[in-house]
Design a binder for these strands. Sequence first.
RNA 1: GUCCCCAUAGUCUAACGGAUAGGACACCGGGUUUUCAUCCCGGCGAUGGGGGUUCGAUUCCCCCUGGGGGCACCA
Length: 514
Amino acid sequence: MQARVRFAPSPTGELHIGGLRTALFNWLFARHNKGKFILRIENTDTLRSREDFTKSIIDNLKWLGLIWDEGPQIGGEYGPYLQSERLPVYKRLADNLLKEEKAYFCYCLPEELEQRKQKMQKAKLPPLYNGRCRYLSEKERKSLENEGMKPAVRFKVLQECELRVKDLLRGEVKFDSKTLGDFIILKSDGTPTFNFANVVDDALMRITHVIRGDDHLSNTPRQLLLYQSLGFKEPFYAHIPMILGKDASKLSKRHGATSVSYYRKEGYLPWALINYLALLGWSTVDSQQFFTREELIQKFTLDRVNKSPAIFDSQKLEWMNAEYIRKTNIHELAELVIPHLRERGWVGEKIDALTYKKIVRISELEKDRLRVLSDIIKLTDFFFEKDFPLDDKSVEKTLKKDYVYSLLKKIKHEIEKMDLLTQDGLEEILRRLAEKLNLSTGKVFHPLRIALTGRMTGPGLFELAEVLGKEEVIRRIDRALKLLIKESGGLSNGRTPDSGSGSGGSSPPPPATH
RNA sequence: GUCCCCAUAGUCUAACGGAUAGGACACCGGGUUUUCAUCCCGGCGAUGGGGGUUCGAUUCCCCCUGGGGGCACCA
């Protein structure tokens, strides 16, 4: 028998990290077993379901490469795959249950139910439905109906019995039907509830293995009852551990970003996300960390899925993303980085050959510093903006040393003599200059770095200077010189500069004259 | 409250009932580098508690504790 599994998100929000992990395990299971992976949209909550969420979920799954074999947009022989298009199916099966007296109409109002529930909780009783509408006579029903009451359909939990969930991960889990209580299968507006729609669709879509979050384990006995009453064969179950937030409660918005869209926007690579998530609750004997797609499919089996919940560690995800960025070749990386540059307004829709070359080179230079793709923005402003800001601390600590003014002048002079500013050429000039002035190389490199980039950190000085080009480098040195003139104007008006290095022998720059 | 699930370092995890309890992230130290990052080397750090079973328990059983989830006309 061919394995058929499904991912059945409800479009009441963005695709969630936890949902994605469930989708991933299903997908891996299907691919590993050469079975089918089915996508079904559970949009029976008419109030909260939104079409744009459906679109977004579908879009994100595609982005991640978790492609389904049957489902929205591609169809399949067990469709439709949107629950909102399957209403007649649920109605028909609910009618059958009514006819067989396995279900009954319930006229209780939501407010009544809520009140009763609270009472029972106060009395420290399990808050189950009390069965008020279970034994209504035909007459009573008619009169309620005449009052215009729209009933819900409630499933009758008849016999007291032990329900056994055969879970592939946890073994046999037993439940007592007494703890269940009659539950609604069709709401008064005619839409099915989760337990009902889920069972009906899984059965009709020939789902063989239900792989889903641990939080559904306690729903399973109700579903088992439905399978039996409907005359369907129950599937195999695998309840995988949930993903928790830092405080070990169910991962939710208050733990920070949980939507796949967010990670996509930030610049996480789809496979990094998948690789990281695969390791949350699953592992190989040797604790292998990195997997190619083929490897993961080949190695993934349910029997190596852990039973205990896992805390989502965004730091490790970030590390893994950085690892994958480093493994990306520079042309691919450039392509990945371009949308971020575009969004920032640093490049336009059309990119000419020269700009493209520059982006490729910058990607290469910054590669080791990127943890997420959007980091490119804060790292490379000096490559794209003429008037990038200078870091105050760096200016204070390094640029304002009194030997720097004359040093920068000399560097500028040397550069002006070059035909073309090349990486090697600049290095030679600066090293020679350092030797001549009896300065350590650092003393020469650092001030120039700040003049060119505004900060102490970044790619190799010679490399980045070559990207900037001769003219721009000179312009930036001038900018720094002007700044020093202004600053020292202030200094000569009272404050004394804290003593400089002594070597270098430069005279203090002239006071500003404006 | 009740039912169910879970329990190895801060985090993710490995370990036929038999190793100094292994790996990864984070953290700390050192080295390489013009800086940052990368890279390399090293370090810190765990079987929740109590009972059994056994020659021997991380591993099997029971109790306790702790955490989580369900008990909706949400999914």
